[in-house]
């Protein structure tokens, strides 16, 4: 008996539509979220993530509607994030049909929110979404990551969809988020997101080795082997991808077959 590695299609949602960009910019329309989610359900996705990148209060009801419609057709786990800034926000997403909520910017601004959510809904319900970017200005109080090319750097947490630096060390923050009670880390590297050259293995494997909670690798899938690398070299527990699935370059089934043939435990 084995806990399988998860394949998670991620739907970035803006004003009720799925969108996809490169390095968090240049958004393209990629379809209706519910339609896509149902397709991934059929393909054997292990989970689906909705990230609301509108995150403005006015469009909150559009998101709730999308979650409801999706929850009607999906009998698999659904994580929802984007603009979650209070326990009430979490509650309304869970009520609409989300199983887990992911907290990003507001967790940095108010770390206690992670603790409050975990205490109220259980640790397993709270996903800490961490967006990171490589920083080459080394100092004594950062976690040094050795890159494959021999260079050294650290990874900084960025917020507001990657537009604002925080000065916070990603590895330390991941450990702190775990201590505060989140049950999972969704790690997106801005270095690789949308570039389709593979996950950011150095930071993924570092964080996966430093925390005891599952880590979802996100950002950068272009080929089947990138999933393999994410699990085997990045030590991720789940791999998340968006555009390769949205634009039909591969199906979840293709990915699972590829992984199963190479000895990675997946649910088929």
């Amino acid at each position: 008996m084995t806990l399988t590695k998860r394949i998670i299609p991620c739907l970035d949602i803006k004003d009720g539509r799925v969108v996809k960009g490169t390095n968090f910019l240049g958004l393209r329309d990629a379809g209706d979220p519910v339609e896509l989610a149902a397709r991934y359900n059929e393909q054997g996705a292990d989970e689906v993530v909705f990230l609301d990148i509108t995150a403005s209060k006015e469009n909150r009801s559009a998101l709730i509607d999308v979650i409801r419609r999706a929850a009607d057709e999906l009998f698999l786990p659904l994580t929802v994030g984007g603009g979650v800034s209070s326990v009430d926000d979490m509650h309304s997403l869970l009520r609409a049909g989300a199983d887990k909520v992911s907290i990003n910017t507001s967790g940095i601004k108010n770390p206690d929110l992670i603790r409050q959510g975990a205490e109220k809904f259980g640790n397993q319900c709270i996903v800490s979404a961490i967006d990171v970017r490589r920083n080459d200005n080394l100092s004594d109080d950062v976690t040094i990551i050795s890159m494959p090319d021999g260079s050294e750097c650290w990874y900084e947490v960025v917020i507001y969809g990657g537009s604002k630096q925080t000065g916070i060390d990603a590895v330390l923050w991941a450990k702190e988020a775990e201590r505060l009670g989140c049950g999972e880390i969704l790690l997106t590297s801005m270095e690789t997101d949308g570039v389709k050259e593979g996950f950011d293995i150095p930071i993924t494997s570092k964080i996966a080795s430093e925390v005891k909670i599952p880590v979802i690798a996100s950002g950068g899938v272009g080929k089947l082997e990138h999933f393999y690398d994410g699990f085997v070299y990045g030590h991720a527990d789940a791999c998340l991808a968006a555009s390769v699935f949205h634009f039909g370059e591969m199906t979840v089934g293709d990915v699972k077959k590829y992984l199963a043939d190479r000895g990675v435990p997946v649910r088929i």
Binding site: M1, T2, L3, T4, K5, R6, D46, N123, Q124, G183, E184, K212, I213, P214, D237, A238, R267
Partner: peptide, 28 residues
């Protein structure tokens, strides 16, 4: 092992029960 135990895992049916009627052993 990571905690929480999160994801798809098998169930081994250890006792016959109407709740698991028609469910294959070791289902995910």
């Amino acid at each position: 092992f990571k905690i929480p135990h999160m994801g798809w895992n098998n169930i081994e049916i250890t006792q016959k029960s109407p709740l698991f009627e028609g469910i294959e052993n070791q289902s995910y």
